[in-house]
Each structure stands twice: as structure tokens, then as C-alpha cells.
Amino acid sequence: MAQPVFTPRVFSGIKPSGGLTLGNYLGAIKRFVDMQGSDFETIYCVVDMHAVTVWQDPADLRHATREVAAGYLAAGIDPEKSILFNQARVSAHAELGWLFNCVARVGWMNRMTQFKDKAGENAEGVSLGLYAYPSLMAADILLYHATHVPVGEDQKQHVELTRDIANKFNHDYKTDFFPQTEPVIEGPAMRVMNLRDGTKKMSKSGESDMERINMTDDADTIAKKFKKAKSDAEPLPETLEGLTDRPEARNLVNIYAALSDMTNAQVIAEYAGAGWGRFKPALADLAVEKLAPVSGEMARLMADPAEIDRLMARGAERANEIAQPILAKTFDIMGFVR
């Protein structure tokens, strides 16, 4: 039997909890923008249903959902070139998520390292949603027959689970309905680290605001944070190998490379032997040049939440046009009478 040909399609999403950081921008949104107008149909989502795996204040959730959408738009996501919406507007995500709960195996969920990290010692007290959310993530992707998902290294396991669910569904129902989605992992700053501790990932929930760049920070705040970022006593090395045991130095070089669209090697070649008194102000200036316009546009968009809602509603209509036939066919394959 000839294998089906799937439309090259990208799906990815960001969870609205805690605000967007530089890590979201460099590790995800900047890459999403770059993929627009390429060889893929691009679908980008605010995955608000994933946010409620832990309790959310309703007003905060509404604000955060619009803020992530504003971040997408301000960074360059074009709602005409891409489909942009929030997950809760497309009920097919929840419906396919339940069907995939019945395909995925408990053993697969037990191997998910992110659940162990998030649940910690309180695994018995967290929501069932936190345990099962990788199945919903698989539904997010396969609901659109997405062939590619841009992810960070820490999310690769979830794409592998998506492939396992697609394989088992196809095998159990003797079909080739769902594609084998490929993770897209690339770029110099896939893991943007903490500005105060280069061994930890930059996080929305860190203790100090100085350890992260928020996408809502103004130019003065961005510059101040980079100039005060932790470094070490040595100047920048002559080669990349010289960064091996220098996590803070490596992180700042990674960020410069990603913001400037240079390789890490090119950054080192330009700044070899430079002290931090030269490099950090240059990084601060570059960051302000690239990020301040984004934060300014986010502020403008957030002043008109009705327009953000209108754009997401239109995106949801377009998403539904793809999702509903795929969901309907899934029900038919599984034998539901409807």
C-alpha cells in the first residue's frame, strides 16, 4: 500500500503561565517567525488548556493568554501567514486528547521526565491532568497532522511519545492515518540559561527578576540586567573549547549569537580576549536593539485586548477547518456511531 503524503505542516504552542522570557523568544518564538512563509504551513497556539494542569487564577489566565498572543504578534507572527489561536477555542483538542488517553499506555506516561520534575515528592497530590498532559500534547500535534514540531531538547521526549501514540493508533486500527511527526531542534540558544546561574534554565518562576529577561521589560531594564549578569574573572577565550567549564560565559555568548544570527564561533572570533567590560555592554546594546521594539509592541497590543481576541477567534476558525475533518475521521476509524 502506498504511504499517504501529508501536507508539510508545523505545529507548536506556548503555555500561558508566568509571562514570556527571553528563553521563550530565542528558543521558540523567533524560530516560529523564521519558519513562516517557508516550505511549511505554520500553526501556532497558546496552549491554555495545558496551563490549568495546575491551578490558575481565572483573571491571571485570561491576561497571560492574551500576553502570549501579543508576544507572538509583536515578534513577527503574521496572522495571515500563520494560524494563531488559543487552544480552548478549538474543542477538538480536548476530544482527541481523550481518545489518545485510551491509546497511550500508563508505562509510557511513567517514563515522562517532566512529570517527575514538576510533581516532585507530591506526585500523589497533583492533578490527573498534569500526569496525562503529554497525551493532550500529542493530540495538539496530530489534530493537524503536523509533520514537524520545533521544540527544545527538553521537549523532544514528548514528540517521541506523539510518534508512539500515532504508531499504536495506526497499528491497532490497521491504518496509516496519523503521520510520524519530526522534532525540529536547531539554533545556538535552544536553552537560554539563568543570568545569575548559568547551570539553570532561565525560568518564569525564578526567585529574582534579575535572573531573567522578560519580554515585557523596557529598554533600560534589559540593558541593566545584561550589564549586571553574572560572568567570571576570565576574558572571553580564543576558541569555543575555552567555554567548556564556564557556564555563565557560555550562556552570554549563546544569547549574543542567537540575537545577532551569528554562530557561537563567529562571536568568539569577534570578541576573543575581550573582557566583560567590553562584551556585556555590547550584548546589552544588541539586546535592546532586538527586544525593546518587541516589548513596546506587546504593550501597544495589550492595551487593546479586544483586537487580540478577534485575531485569535479568526485563527480558531481556520484551525477548526483543518481539525474537525481529522477528528471526525478519527471517530469513524475507531467505530463510533455519531
Score class of each variant (00 low, 15 high):
Arg9Leu: 11
Ser17Tyr: 04
Gly23Phe: 10
Gly27Ile: 06
Lys30Val: 02
Phe40Cys: 12
Ile43Leu: 10
Tyr44Thr: 00
Val46Thr: 08
Ala59Leu: 08
Glu67Arg: 10
Ala69Asp: 11
Ala70Asn: 04
Tyr72Trp: 05
Leu73Asn: 03
Arg89Gly: 05
Glu95Tyr: 08
Leu96Lys: 04
Trp98Asp: 06
Leu99Lys: 11
Cys102Gly: 00
Met109Asp: 06
Arg111Cys: 02
Thr113Ala: 07
Phe115Arg: 00
Lys118Thr: 00
Gly120Thr: 15
Leu130Lys: 04
Pro134Ser: 03
Pro134Asp: 05
Asp140Cys: 02
Ile141Leu: 02
Thr147Val: 06
Gln155Pro: 08
Gln155Glu: 03
Asp164Pro: 03
Ile165Phe: 08
Lys174Cys: 15
Thr175Tyr: 12
Pro183Ala: 11
Thr199Lys: 04
Met202Phe: 09
Ser203Glu: 11
Ser203Ala: 13
Lys204Gln: 10
Lys204Cys: 00
Arg212Cys: 06
Ser231Asn: 07
Asp232Ser: 09
Ala233Asp: 12
Glu238Lys: 03
Glu241Pro: 06
Arg250Ala: 13
Ile255His: 04
Asp261Glu: 15
Asn264Gln: 13
Gly275Asn: 11
Gly275Ala: 10
Gly277Met: 07
Phe279Trp: 01
Leu291Lys: 14
Glu307Tyr: 12
Ile308His: 09
Leu311Gln: 15
Arg318Tyr: 00
Lys329Gln: 15
Phe331Thr: 10
Asp332Lys: 14
Ile333Gln: 14
Met334Ser: 08
Met334Cys: 10
Arg338Leu: 11
Arg338Ser: 05
